[in-house]
Each structure stands twice: as structure tokens, then as C-alpha cells.
Design a binder for these strands. Sequence first.
RNA 1: GUGACUAUAGUUCAAUGGUAGAACAUCGGUUUGUGGUACCGAGUACGAGGGUCCGAUUCCCUCUAGUCACCCCA
Length: 466
Amino acid sequence: MVTGKLKRKPKAKVGKGKQVPQEPLLLQTVRGMRDILPEDQPYWNQMRRVLNRSAQEYGFGRIDVPVLEYANLFNRSIGEGTDIIDKEMYSFVTRGGDKVALRPEFTAGIARAYIQHGMNVLPKPIRLFSMGTAYRYDRPQEGRYREFQQGNFDIFGEEDPILDAHLIQLASRVMNSLGIKNIEFQLNSIGCPQCRKEYLNLLVSYLDSRKQKLCQDCRRRIESNPLRVLDCKEDKCTQVAASAPQTVNHLCVACHTHFKSLLEYLDELNLPYVINHRLVRGLDYYTRTVFEIWLNDESRRGFSFGGGGRYDMLIKSIGGDDTPAIGFGLGLDRIVTEMKRINAKLYRESRPRVFLAQLGDLAKKKSLNLFAELEKNGVLVAESFGRGSLKSQLRVADKLGVEITLIVGQKEALDGTVIVKNMVSGTQETTAVEKLVGLVKKLLKSEVVVLKNGEQSLEDGQLQQV
RNA sequence: GUGACUAUAGUUCAAUGGUAGAACAUCGGUUUGUGGUACCGAGUACGAGGGUCCGAUUCCCUCUAGUCACCCCA
């Protein structure tokens, strides 16, 4: 469906400047796909740490489900007629003739696993946490990729609105731990299938009666997605929207009570939430509570880190017992972008504080064992074995910000000694190989060796601004 | 899927209808076994294809990709 670009790399010159054409290479990521480079990994690691920890604290068991499922599973759960199914799913037929699809979200697969493995016999509620990639054939732009990472929390088997509140509390806790505090929860109840249907009828007839006062787009929206009309920025549409019927006023008694208690729980929690009558999610399986996590920033209104809601009918509709459930997904790519933007504090990654330099053939041979010896004793060592001159090796050592450089030359290799150079003071001493590990460890702990930028040397795991 | 804008070294940016410069980064050197500064040097780019033209990186078209809006959502 997408043809990659062929880029030739014809620069391989042979002999007298003749160019030999090379194999065509695909030197570009497929549209909407991207690499996450080493420099970004600290953010990702941090996020995974926070997610895993929060999941444990809130009693969620980790589950991993396949990226590939039968396409029907998604069609049936997310719903035909939604954008995700009709326009955005990566679906294809396998060599064996199976119709499959890359998961466009997590809930369907997790619900499938819940039924398939008979989790309904476990004590309820059952809490499951998952993290991984999902795929949507959408038009890419920043924060929207065709392959994206998602974290997913689901709770099965309990209808009580306190769980809705608990889940939102968890979402809040996660965002907070990541350092993203400027958020607010957008909240709505879209009722059960019965009351929603009645509401939509009301809304459509209301909008139809005022069609003349709406913009072009909104006239179209009455058919395609009437709720979106309420969200239009055109002045005239805003006026029409202002007095339009709202979902929460047309809930059935049960749904109304459910929503009301949820709000009471949230008030108790003191969480910043806003009831958004226009919030409706693009998946058919939602019932009652829906919510999204928005950045609380006027200039980037509506920027969402994730969202979710209740899906009390889903399990039954795909063949399980009647099981109420609720869950939400987090857009991890967007979270990382935000963490970078606000310069979030990160846990310091371990990095070498010792550099091993070698000079001459004999020393080079010995250096591998020396490296292993230090590493086994828990001393992280950087090296640049491929380099020849001591000067260039020291340059690398300096760039790495290492505190100690070990130098082994021809003479030391023969004597069984090592030069230990303090990169801060510039002083150095010679020691026997047998005493090396002890000396290095002692030096790393001592105050004589201090980080050059004046910071105190931090133990791994301490917070540090990156 | 619709519309708009963009596309030059690893990165950030220049210039030009006659094939390109800088900064940062990388690598090497400033005498033989010692880093951070300084100085010198090297390599690497016009996204792809077609057209106009004597000649295109520069103009036009198509494709690809990115960004933005719509749409949608993570």
C-alpha cells in the first residue's frame, strides 16, 4: 500500500573513479514509523518504570497480548462504522488465508484473553496492565504515528463507580509521577445504549431544526458525527451548541446515578476534572463513563495524553459472560514528548566513571582481561580499544566525563602494573594489577574524586536533572 | 481520506539558472607514552523520478517523506 523510496548509494568508487551501482537501499522509515534513538531512551525507561510501579501498587497484573489478532475481533468490539475500523486498520490476509489485523488498540485483545483463559473464575475485580505498540493507518503528524506505544489499564468484573474513580486516580498518579502535573480530566457519561440512542435522536432533531444557522462542516456533521457540532469553533455554531441538549440530562436513572456517584468520588479525591458534554469517544464499545486526560494549557487545548471509559457490554458482545469493565490507554509517545518539553526529572542512568586506555600490542591483549576483571567487580568501564594513541584515548575519556583513567602501556604490561590517573586533579599513581580493583573502588568513593562540573557524585537511582 | 506549507552534510542553517558554504558534531594532526582550551587539516549533502533549458540544487510536474489544519484519536 505504501511504496518505499529507493535511494541509490552509488558512491562506491573502484579504481579510477568508476562508480559501481549498488543494490538499491531503503534508507527511510516507512511512513508513520520512527526510530527511538539511544538519547531518548532514558525518558522511555523512566516512563516504563513509573508505569510498572504504579500498576503494581494498584494491583494490576501484567499481561501481554499479541500484536496480531483476527480482524473480526476488532470489527466486532470497536465497531464497524468507526474511523478506526473503516479507515485506519492495518488488516491483511495471511498466506494461510486468515483475515488478521495489527491491533489498533489494546482493549479488544485483552478482553479476548480474559474470556479465552477463563479469568472470570478469578476473584473480581480483575486488573490487567499492558504496554506495547499499536497501529493505525492515519495521517501522521507530531504526536500521531502509525506505530505508537500505548500503556493500558483495564478492570474487569465490577460495575461500581468507585472503580471508575479509582482508575482515574491511577491515571492521575501516573501522570504526576512522570512529572506532568498540568493536566485535567475531561469527563462525560454517554449512558447505556438505550439512553444514548434517545439522546442522539433529540440532538439530531434539535440540530436539524437549526441547520440554517450552522456552518458547512456542521451541516455535514449532523449526519456523520452530530456530537462534533457541539465542539465547532465557528461563532454561529457555538451559539447553537450553547442551548443544545446535553447527554447528562438525558441519562436513564441507573446511568444518572452511576455518573453522579462517580462525581462524588472524584470530588472526594480532589482531582481536577471538567465535565465535557461533547466528549464522545471513537469506539463503539464505550458505555456510561468516558474520560480523557488533557493538557491544561489554553494554547494547546484538547491535546490528549490518553483516555478511556467503561465498556460494560463488550465482554458479552464478543462471547463472554456479562461482565462490566472499565479501562484506559495512555499515549506513551505523547507523554515522552511532553516530558522532554517540560524537562522532566529523570533517574540517572548508570554510566562509567572509569576509562581504560591501552598502549602497545601487549597492553592491548591484557586490556580485555582487565576490563572483564573490573566489570565483574561491579565497576563500569568505558574504553576505546580501537584507538592507537594515548592522546586520543584520553580525549575520549575526558568527553565521557570519567573520573579515573587507567593506563596500561608496554612497560606496565610487562611489570603487571597499571597507572591510575585522577582526571580531576590530573595526578596519577602506579599500582599492581592485583590491587587495582580495590584501589579503584576506594577512589570512586573518596572525596578526592569529584565530578568535574562541580556536582556531587550521585549514586545510581538518585534524581538528577538531565 | 481532503487542503496548505516544507525537503540542502550526522544536526541547525546559508547561497546560487553554470553542480554548493558555515556552525556544531565526527575523525586526524600540532614530533616520538598523557585529556579539557587554542590552532591546522579531512570526510560527508542539494529526498526520488520526469520535464523546460545550451545548462537546474535553483523554474514546472509527479512521487515520497515531514509539519500544520480538517478528520480522528494515543
